[in-house]
Nucleic acid binder design. Structure first.
Length: 201
DNA sequence: AAACGGATTGGCT
DNA sequence: GCCAATCCGTTTC
């Protein structure tokens, strides 16, 4: 069930971003397990991607996580408040990553409701990257954690989608990325409620 | 030691 | 659907 560590070494981050739709993201925090089905992702293709923190091989204390071997978490703070969770992919020194933008709550829904201070009936409980991370209790302490450990991991529950069940659009919030701003690198499950607001197509 | 700016959210109309 | 708060970590001086 848990994804093999080789899974994350695939250098085709775009295929991986699509393939992660339907996979189940788990966290275990102080003995409490919560999980959700990934319903929305974005691909960031490393040093040539103007929207990536690793653009131009930019190595800083923060971006170093992305240069590590695939199969760990990259969690960073956005707008001073939101923790955004990414899956680091590809071999060492190829800083590709997949941003998990939305999940559908699956396990430990009561705990998720408590973390988000809202009932499961509101889709905002786990739609959008900041909300999805918060729903699973992911904060910066998860940065660089191994996805094959027992604190955060991803499982295959045999939920698969055909190409016609996946919608594709430009990435959200990367207008500054010039010619890369409009690339079709955002993927989400067609018709699923748990998808972030912007450009819902 | 200080300025910068953002891979957003949610509240309000 | 639109708009504006937020705010601290990151980077640079």
């Amino acid at each position: 069930m848990k994804l093999n560590s080789d899974y994350y070494l695939n250098e085709d981050v775009i295929s991986l971003a699509k393939d992660l739709l339907g996979k189940v993201l788990y966290t275990k925090i102080e003995g409490e397990i919560t999980a959700g089905v990934i319903t929305e992702t974005e691909a960031y293709f490393g040093i040539k991607d103007k929207a990536s923190h690793a653009f131009g091989s930019r190595r800083t204390a923060r971006t170093e996580t992305m240069f590590a071997q695939g199969g760990i978490a990259y969690v960073y703070l956005c707008y001073g408040i939101h923790n955004l969770f990414n899956v680091v992919t590809s071999p060492k020194d190829n800083p590709n990553a997949v941003l998990v933008r939305s999940i559908e709550p699956l396990i430990g829904v009561e705990i998720i409701e408590e973390r988000r201070s809202m009932p499961r009936t509101k889709v905002a409980i786990s739609a959008g990257p900041g909300s999805a991370a918060k729903a699973l209790g992911i904060d910066r302490t998860f940065n660089a954690k191994d996805l094959s450990g027992d604190e955060i991991w991803i499982e295959d529950h045999q939920i698969y989608f055909n190409p016609d069940q996946i919608s594709i659009s430009p990435r959200v919030g990367v207008a500054y990325a010039q010619e890369h701003a409009l690339l079709p690198l955002r993927f989400f499950v067609k018709g699923n409620k748990y998808v972030s607001k912007p450009n819902k197509v």
